[in-house]
């Protein structure tokens, strides 16, 4: 049943215009700085080697979390309000299966959007700029291919904290009745978390959005330690909010 539910979630997602609008936004937001850099009179130097990681910082910290919020509002709250959430349940799907299928599709969506961002970044930058100076990590200069591999690695790594954030958003979506409230409250949350990170250095390590931009890990003296912390904090968020979501959904009376 789980596989069938995942198939349905994909089917619904690909039929939604929102997904294509998200991709268009990513494309435009990527291409604008590239074109601005190329054609402006200001001296902005962009290089193919570094541009995808620069692009990851704003897309993973701001754009993708907003997409996650909009998609969660659609997948959970809007479906509940429209009465379509119950359709799988009355066709013998278990609540746990429905929740997991939606989460897995959300993770796949994050993966797709990140890969799309990566591809658009590399392609657009390579059309207008040269590769520039190679990557340097802790004083070690990397080959171009290793630079690309590190970049891909950081993109893939950012799926984990973004997934943890998705679970948090799922929990909030399950508790609210209006998709508008879900979007409003969660976007407010994104800004609040960002503000807390800036105001308090002692609290920021436990704020999940602190780990969205995995590119900065490469500047750390101990990359391994940073990755372990990222995985640990993400796992804590996932465990807490998945458990809360499951309890909420298990006991929820589906009255719409």
């Amino acid at each position: 049943m789980l596989f069938r539910l995942i198939k349905n979630e994909f089917y619904k997602m690909l039929k939604m215009k929102k997904i294509y609008i998200f991709m268009l936004i990513i494309f435009v937001m990527t291409i604008i700085p590239v074109l601005a850099s190329k054609f402006s009179e200001a001296e902005i130097v962009m290089k193919v080697n570094t541009f995808p990681l620069e692009n990851l910082s704003w897309s993973a910290e701001m754009i993708i979390p907003i997409f996650i919020v909009i998609l969660a509002a659609e997948m959970i709250t809007n479906e509940y309000n429209n009465g379509t959430f119950k359709l799988s349940l009355i066709n013998s799907a278990k609540r746990s299966e429905v929740l997991i299928s939606k989460l897995l599709v959300m993770i796949t969506f994050i993966f797709m959007i990140l890969i799309f961002t990566l591809m658009v970044s590399y392609i657009s930058a390579s059309i207008f700029f040269d590769w520039g100076v190679p990557f340097e990590i802790n004083g070690h200069i990397l080959s171009e291919i290793n630079g690309i591999l590190y970049t891909i690695g950081m993109y893939l790594l950012s799926i984990i904290p973004l997934t943890a954030f998705s679970v948090l958003v799922f929990y909030i979506s399950l508790n609210l009745n209006s998709p508008g409230s879900v979007v409003g409250i969660n976007i407010g949350l994104i800004f609040l978390l960002s503000l807390i990170r800036q105001l308090s250095a002692s609290i920021s390590p436990i704020i999940i959005s602190n780990y969205f931009n995995t590119g900065i890990i490469l500047n750390s003296a101990n990359i391994f330690k940073e990755v372990i912390i990222l995985l640990g904090i993400s796992l804590i968020y996932m465990t807490i909010f998945y458990s809360l979501s499951w309890v909420n959904l298990k006991n929820k009376d589906i009255v719409k």
């Binding site: 049943m1 069938r4 539910l5 198939k7 349905n8 089917y11 619904k12 039929k15 939604m16 215009k17 429209n82 009465g83 379509t84 119950k86 359709l87 799988s88 009355i90 066709n91 013998s92 799907a93």
Partner: peptide, 24 residues
């Protein structure tokens, strides 16, 4: 079952809505 006003994914066709149930 059809519970109260039947709900559908309005952005899909009637056939596609039924296909979603078939998939289950």
């Amino acid at each position: 079952a059809m519970v109260e006003t039947p709900s559908f994914y309005e952005y899909m066709t009637g056939y596609e809505n039924l296909k979603l149930t078939t998939n289950l």
